[in-house]
């Protein structure tokens, strides 16, 4: 005779048993990764000494508040501009041909060298000598390039204007 019964006696492990189980697990993992753990502890101790851990702790505990303040700050017109500008600058840099930029930068570098060398001469530059310099092929080259840049810029600005109208 086995009547229907519903009583169940659970043999739950004692808190001590549960603790012992989990400690055994942890010790096993520690033993396997001894060296890395020691390194990590060192890093943690350094972080603690510098106070970074305290700051992190506070940020994590207050993460929603902090995120809300941060996001509020970021959600301002000036921040939008900074982000847009930042992204535009990145885009601009991305659109340039590195080889051309290298040539240009080399040129500018060399120019600066020359300029500082001239400074030490401490001689005044006459208008005449400037005019004469214009004839020099090196100067002509640079001027042509600068005019080209101005021209290109103008074209682009013109286009934007047309678009607007």
């Amino acid at each position: 005779m086995a009547k229907a019964i519903t009583q169940i006696r659970r043999v739950d492990p004692t808190p001590e048993e549960l603790q012992a189980q989990s400690i055994t697990k942890i010790i096993g993992a520690l033993a396997e990764n001894g060296e890395s753990i020691i390194k990590m502890l060192d890093i943690v101790s350094q972080l603690d000494q510098t106070g970074i851990l305290d700051a992190l702790d506070a940020i994590l505990k207050k993460r929603v508040d902090v995120a809300e303040i941060m996001i509020q700050q970021m959600n301002q017109p000036t921040m939008h501009k900074i982000m847009k500008n930042g992204m535009n600058i990145f885009k601009f840099l991305g659109s340039l041909n590195p080889e051309q930029i290298r040539m240009l930068m080399d040129g500018v570098g060399h120019g600066i060298d020359k300029a500082t060398a001239r400074e030490s001469d401490d001689k005044k530059t006459s208008l005449w000598s400037l005019g004469k310099a214009m004839k020099k092929p090196e100067v002509k080259e640079s001027l042509t390039m600068m005019v080209s840049i101005l021209e290109g810029m103008g074209e682009s600005l013109q286009r934007e204007k047309d678009h607007v109208h």
């Binding site: 809300e68 996001i71 509020q72 959600n75 921040m79 982000m83 847009k84």
Partner: peptide
């Protein structure tokens, strides 16, 4: 992310609109 953080985040993305590619 909780709504009070998520909504401004979407706003920023829309405002800044870096282009959908990104």
């Amino acid at each position: 992310i909780p709504q009070n953080v998520l909504e401004p985040m979407i706003d920023i993305t829309k405002e800044v609109e870096p282009g959908y590619k990104e």
